[in-house]
Design a protein around this nucleic acid. Structure first.
Lengths: 225, 225
DNA sequence: GACATGGATATTGTATACAAATGCCATCGG
DNA sequence: CCGATGGCATTTGTATACAATATCCATGTC
């Protein structure tokens, strides 16, 4: 992470995810280099990685810009993620060791703690959630699958709406994690896959509902935050 | 494609797929630059792309080498490809226009012609096959899905064994394409998905059988070619 | 003889200069 | 006034020089 190209990648990525660089904005290499305090070479590398993540796009003449995620793109990403994480859960259940199961239970406990605070600890929830899914991906034991999911896990719009989660949504998410853990304990791949697919698609519809609500209220996406 | 980085990408890629650069070989940037007739800058870009394709790997100290695909890696890639192409076929069936259906039928006719030659035209078959799958992916209308499949379609070992296909295998592949076309004509997504998944998995097992036969004969993978 | 150490060698990372291309805008002709 | 054209400004692409880091091998020590 100490390399200039990694710093550039993180910096630009954060600026996109935070909305500091709005969708559609042109990304000049020179300007980004100055912002990141590095030369154009590592910036170019960072931009290529972000392009692979589909966080930035490219015109037919090689101009780079912040990708604009339409509601269809979000639906698309969720659909694929549901399928791939479902497959990961199936494989994980079939390969689950007692040690890994213990780690998953641990991550779930941390998650439960986070949502039981007087005012829910969203950052803690997200971290526990990330850990939970990471362990599953690790146990699934497919580098390919992990690579494919890598580009799908963090979507700009979704991360930005995470802190609007209600306590009820957090509690429900945790309950689904518990059910998944039960499927893992039984080494039931089909069950695990079904729960995981449902888990992701429910999250999608929660997002889509919130999105529609904002539209109906006549608010722009930015103003709603 | 006229850019130096694109030429470097194609050149290195071909050297890997052809086996000229064997699995495990170290890839020095300087040496590759000389081979491709460009400087290190575009070579570095090409290597990053190949890394995303998982055709090359990287040591913990940033040394690049030709990825070594174990039989498990191949199985992994096929399993994911079966799932993703299956999904693509489902989406394509649900979105199929009459014009696109005509194009698919056309690609199939070209494919039929190729395998009916006195001595099967494997190159022609592969091109028709590529076109067929490309149209499906286009009709599926998911840029994400296309991007994910992009890294899965061309596996080194599989391409190298393609020319050993028997006429019977080619004929069977064509028959499956015909059946897929029927599913598209009915706009039956579930049917299309099932055929496509089966199509890919059958191809995998044909490959795995051939691979096992080579092992049993005490031949190395290279010697078998 | 095995292993640690240090420095020479090779390789990768970054900055910068320059080349090529793209976009912009003023000018000109209709 | 509208659109085409040409040249200037900006941006991206490539080469190269240099810096940082890793590898390798010889040497010395136990």
């Amino acid at each position: 992470m100490s390399r200039a190209s990694d710093r550039a990648y993180s910096a630009i990525r954060n600026m996109i995810l935070s909305g500091e660089l709005p969708a559609g904005a042109q990304l000049g290499e020179e300007a980004l280099a100055e912002m990141c305090g590095v030369s154009r070479t590592p910036v170019r590398e960072a931009l290529r990685r972000l392009e692979a993540d589909m966080l930035v796009g490219r015109t037919d003449t090689q101009r780079t810009f912040v990708a604009d995620w339409s509601i269809n793109d979000v639906a698309d990403a969720f659909e694929l993620r549901a399928m791939l994480e479902g497959r990961a859960a199936r494989r994980a259940a079939e390969r689950m060791s007692d040690a890994a199961l213990a780690r998953i239970r641990n991550a779930n406990r941390a998650l439960a703690t986070a949502i039981q605070q007087p005012s829910p600890d969203v950052a803690g929830f997200l971290e526990g959630n990330r850990e939970f899914h990471a362990i599953i991906l690790e146990v699934a034991g497919s580098r390919r699958l992990a690579a494919l999911l890598g580009t799908l896990i963090e979507q700009p719009v979704v991360l930005r709406t995470a802190r609007h989660y209600t306590r009820e949504e957090l509690r429900r998410s945790h309950a689904e994690h518990e059910e998944l853990t039960a499927a893992f304990a039984r080494r039931d791949g089909a069950w695990a896959e079904a729960i995981m697919t449902s888990h992701i698609l429910r999250a999608y519809h929660a997002y889509a509902d919130a999105h529609r609500a904002r539209i109906d209220a006549g608010m722009t996406q930015e103003a709603a935050e």
